[in-house]
Design a binder for these strands. Structure first.
Lengths: 217, 217, 217, 217
DNA sequence: AATGAATGAGGGTTCATTCAT
DNA sequence: CATGAATGAACCCTCATTCAT
């Protein structure tokens, strides 16, 4: 007797599929029909799971960002050293980015595609995330000659841009990517304040990539 | 007797207007009707200036990238010091970015919206531009522990991301932006190789911002 | 211990609610989902009470018209004077109209929305009702210079149109409405045949308005 | 060489066709595709002539009501006798109603289908028309025992209801219809104030029915 | 007696594009 | 050079209805 998939699992599958399609064709170019085709669910049947195409985008972005944020906050619990905090932020961000590239591309590239309340809610999460980063940078080097906003968004730019060029199969592995970007940014931001010890927070080999959609039942 | 605007000027006006619209609404969400409305030229009248919407996007990206590239090549003529070359690249890039934010957003954000031959032609220019950067970085620190591709695209990410956050009126001026990003990246990339002399290539005060559409007849 | 509502009561509630919605938005613009929402019964749950949306409309119209017709026939029992018979018809019609405006609007406005057998069955009742009126008018003035059909439908037009303008709170009370319309029509139809004594069939004060849905168990 | 129909003529044809379809199936049940089929114009081609289905309904109602109102005002010019004025109103109303039954049915039956500004604009015309009638009735019998609003809408009810029953081929001719309704209403409203002279404003035989869409070049 | 999940058909509307003038 | 008029394809979404449970 086959297990019937639960409602939430089915929704998760739809979101995952839709994210891939949005990532490939772009949100506006993708059609609900594409998603219907890819999921095997009828066009109208999809509307049982979301109210509108925009809500679908919102659900993806919200879930995606929510996971990143939650995980980060869990990671940072009890960690006070700003150096280490930043390193964890970068690693968490990149690890998710590479493991869930499609979803993160949608998050990065389709930021402006939400409107109204949906936009506000996602932006609120973004603001929290950004502030967390800015505060850490501030603490890290209170009298930095580099503008804080510039530094913050330089870091996010470095990280978010990867959906434009990074190919897991052709490029360095994630750990090295994280290492390189961390070093690049920290050395740059701290100046002569010293180097970062490499490999600080590497995942054990064989450990699964963190998926945004995995149910943690 | 009023001067009749020449064909090229009119096209430039159309491209500028279209770029602004593409930047605001995104390429796929913008309609030719929007451009017709904004330019005051009839829907069908526009097709005298371009063959298709995609060609319009191509013309914008090509013109835009061409200008950046040309200017950079002119600037680099005779400059051999890789340190100085990189600094010029960053300055040129950022200056254009901030002066022609709408166009550069279209260039950055709508990279994937071109197809076929159009895409190939723009990508060719991008490749040249990227290689120019990679080569300079290579020369700058031949034995860098940081992967060259990572470094290159970290730099571009930092710079191209600015359309997502930079507001000319709320943020630091361009010169400082360029200074901060240069320092951030170079310090980061070079490690303990020393600091960059600030303000190396600043524009003389009063000099006009470089416009991508200005005719240099 | 709470009384479980009986099947018929629940159906009556559904019909009443649906009638209000059909009256407000029109039959075709109203959706079964609207009715589901308003009744608190699930979409599919409603289909236990009717086979199709059209049957729902039919049930409303049939019940509604049936009540009007039954009441009229009871009222007319034993009354032979055509003058008095017409007066009773008008009063009965208007009283129900104003007391059950939503339902009567559905009856008047959505006459053409039924098809096939449903339409036939309602039309049959309408024919009986109309003929009852026509016959009375004929008897009232056998040699009227006014065409009988014209007179009949002029009367119904006067009465049925009220859903387009009558507001119980801003207009004259029903009794006066009935009085005015009766007088207007009878004087018009009879010509110099004399006036109608006013207030002939008024309801006793305090007597409840007749509801179409009230169970008379 | 065939005459190309002018833009306005083509629009008029579309409106006429659409009115017939709206009358037959009702506004909400009719689809733009129905109109496309009936006019032979492609679905999207229709949108060159109106912005939305609702605007199409508005155009029909506005044009239709505008014509009735204009004609009435022209007819009433210089006529002071309220008796005669009312007679002209009724004749004008009924003549148009019967000659343009489809359009007038749309006007009567779909009054509530417009929203927002469209509705306001049509209602404004309706208010003027109604007031013109009310004022005449008031003048006709200043101390009528019948409520003015009741009288006004009784008249309109009588007249507008005809789309529900009148068949040009089975019923009395328009002239007689107008005659009967006028007499019915006037006798009713005036009471013993005397009879109306019959046939006051009959059209000469052979004279064309007034069409709402006829161009008066 | 009631519901969650699903569907086919069809709705109004917009789009890039064309072509005769 | 420029435009008014037109079109086919595709869009998102809603609908009444069903069926297993």
């Amino acid at each position: 007797m086959a297990e019937e998939p639960r409602h939430d699992d089915k929704l998760a599958r739809i979101l995952r599929t839709a994210a891939a399609i949005f990532a490939d064709k772009g949100y506006h170019e993708a059609s609900i029909r594409d998603i219907s085709r890819a999921t095997g669910i009828s066009l109208s049947g999809l509307y049982y799971y979301f109210r509108s195409k925009e809500e679908l985008l919102f659900l993806i972005q919200d879930h995606c960002f929510g996971t990143v944020l939650d995980n980060l906050e869990r990671l940072l619990e009890g960690v006070m050293d700003p150096h280490r905090r930043l390193r964890l932020l970068v690693e968490n961000h990149l690890r998710f980015f590479v493991s869930n590239m499609k979803e993160m591309k949608v998050l990065s590239h389709e930021a402006g595609s939400l409107t109204g309340d949906y936009r506000k809610r996602v932006n609120e999460k973004k603001r929290r995330y950004t502030e967390l980063c800015t505060a850490t940078l501030q603490e890290l080097r209170p009298a930095s000659p580099i503008d804080l906003r510039v530094a913050t968004f330089a870091l996010f730019g470095m990280m978010n841009w990867i959906y434009n060029w990074y190919h897991a199969d052709r490029d360095v592995p994630v750990a090295e990517l994280a290492e390189d970007l961390s070093q690049l940014f920290l050395q740059g931001y701290l100046g002569d304040a010293g180097l970062v010890p490499a490999g600080a927070a590497e995942r054990a080999p064989g450990e699964a990539r963190p998926s945004i959609w995995r149910r943690t039942s």
